[in-house]
Amino acid sequence: MSETLKIGFFVTCLVDAMRPSIALASIKLLESAGCDVTVPSAQVCCGQPAFNNGDIDTAKNIARQVIDVFEQYDFLVAPSASCLGMIKVHYPELFQDEPHYLEKVEKLSNKCYEILTFLHDVLKIEISARFDSTVTYHDSCSGLRELGIESQPRQLLNKVKGLKLKEMKDTDICCGFGGTFCVKYPDISTSLVSDKVKNIIDVDAKVVLAGDLGCLMNIAGRCQREGKAVRFYHTVEVLAGMAAEYPAIGEKWS
């Protein structure tokens, strides 16, 4: 691309707290493709926990903050389909009763991207990373159904040298994370994530990749509790060739 794209990077609260390497890997990839990346410090969360728990006022307050901070960039990019789904699909729903503001909301909705789709569809990025392992990809529900992300991560992963992608069964079924659902209904959540772990073991993958840290923490946590030796990374960590620099999710620095 000829002109430099100005990206406002939305870290997401979970990545900020739990796994900054996902943001670092994303930024590395964006910059390697010539983007000018800014991470505004006045960002916190997308408001999804409030939205999904019926607290519309709180959700709207947080949404306003995101919209006002990010409107100045060419694109908002985030390393989570779930948060992006909130911004792209649900922010416009939230402001239906404020036609004046809605215009602004829709503008942002049209220029925000989940990182993997942005790398693939917009930047058409070249991948030079190497990752010698058999991996399987977990589709997050918001990615798959709210944003239609299915082929992009797989096509990107197929460009990684040494990586062998194997599809597990039931990729369209929820892992049981569901944000606050997993702690509100731990028993149901456990039943769902146990099914997911079984599918992962059945496909005999050594590594599970996904685009959402929430799902990854949930599945990794269950896998580790069951004593299964599978490793978990966010897809961008592999694409940026940074997986070796950090312990996998739930593992210690060696």
């Binding site: 707290a17 739990m18 796994r19 900054p20 390497s21 997993c182 702690v183 731990p186 959540s189 456990t190 994530v193 923490m217 949930n218 990794a220 946590g221 269950r222 580790q224 509790r225 950090y246 999710i249 739930g250 210690k252």
Partner: peptide, 11 residues
């Protein structure tokens, strides 16, 4: 969470 899953340590 931890009744059935491990919780990862932050980085």
């Amino acid at each position: 969470w931890t009744q059935s899953r491990d919780f990862p340590s932050p980085q």
